[in-house]
Simulated assay, not measured.
Amino acid sequence: MDVAKAIAEYLGPKVQFVTPAWDVITSGNWQDRWDMAMGEMIPTKARAEKLNFPAAYAYQLVIAAVHKDSKATKPSDLDGKVIGLTASTVAESYANQTFTQDWVGAQSDAQPIKFQFTPGEIKTYQTNNIALDDLRLGDGVRLDAVLTDRSNLRNAIKAGYPVKELSEPLFFVPAAIAIPRGDKEFSDKIAEAIKNKGRCHALQDNDHAVRN
């Protein structure tokens, strides 16, 4: 939200926030209901067929969260477990072991993604927060773990959720701004706003590797 506010300040208009479901955002069928998506979207080649990505502004760290009473100590302890995550995300692809580094600008010689566990069941949700709501009910009550980004998890912990990070991030991916295809002028203005560090001071975030 801070990044979106900084971009709006740079461009001039007042920002307004809406919260549609993630699968609606990634579908690209926005019907002029909003102009820009700021959900740390990964600019995959499939999504690039429906959306434009003016700029990547951070790197999302995807991590496994477990209940504080969980006996799991490493990702492999999640083999055969019930995993919650947001539908239509790279976390879902990772859990299904179909995730590849196919985002726009990915290096062809990058190390392949290592799948560190095989879920017994995958439960999908509209948002990470709803998945974490189920996880905080207790270890194994509805879920054994949630795949989410580290920033979201740490916000939940600060809010009092009885959950914890299982280990180091499973992988990290670029987070990009998404807009409808076809408006080059708008795309260029957003890219300019991101590059202007003096005005877009909100790009400082301790939970992300910020793109400079």
Rank of each mutant, 00 (worst) to 15 (best):
T118Q: 08
V62Q: 11
K45V: 12
I130H: 15
D79W: 12
L143H: 01
D109W: 11
K114I: 11
P119A: 02
N52K: 09
E40G: 02
A72D: 04
Y94N: 05
W34N: 03
A46D: 13
A106S: 14
T100L: 10
Q60G: 06
G80A: 04
E92M: 13
N96L: 13
D77K: 00
D77E: 01
K45L: 11
A48D: 14
L61E: 12
I122S: 07
L135G: 02
P112N: 09
N129M: 12
T127C: 15
F99D: 06
A46C: 13
S108N: 14
F117P: 00
N96E: 12
A64L: 02
Y125Q: 07
P112Q: 10
A58H: 05
S76V: 09
K114P: 00
T98K: 12
L51T: 07
G140H: 07
A37W: 00
T89I: 14
G140W: 01
K45S: 14
A95Q: 08
Y59N: 12
T44D: 06
T89F: 08
L78N: 00
L51H: 06
K50E: 07
M36R: 02
S93P: 15
Q107G: 14
S93C: 14
F53K: 06
N128F: 09
A48P: 15
R47Q: 05
G80W: 05
L85G: 08
K45P: 03
I83Y: 03
V141C: 04
K114R: 07
L85H: 12
A87E: 08
I122F: 13
Q60F: 07
L135P: 03
D35Y: 00
A87W: 03
P112I: 08
G140K: 02
S76W: 05
E92I: 15
A65Q: 05
K81C: 01
Q97D: 07
Q60R: 08
L137N: 13
T127G: 14
A72G: 10
G140N: 08
R136I: 15
W103I: 01
Y94E: 09
L85D: 08
D133K: 03
P119C: 07
Y57M: 10
A48W: 10
I113Y: 02
A64Q: 00
R142A: 10
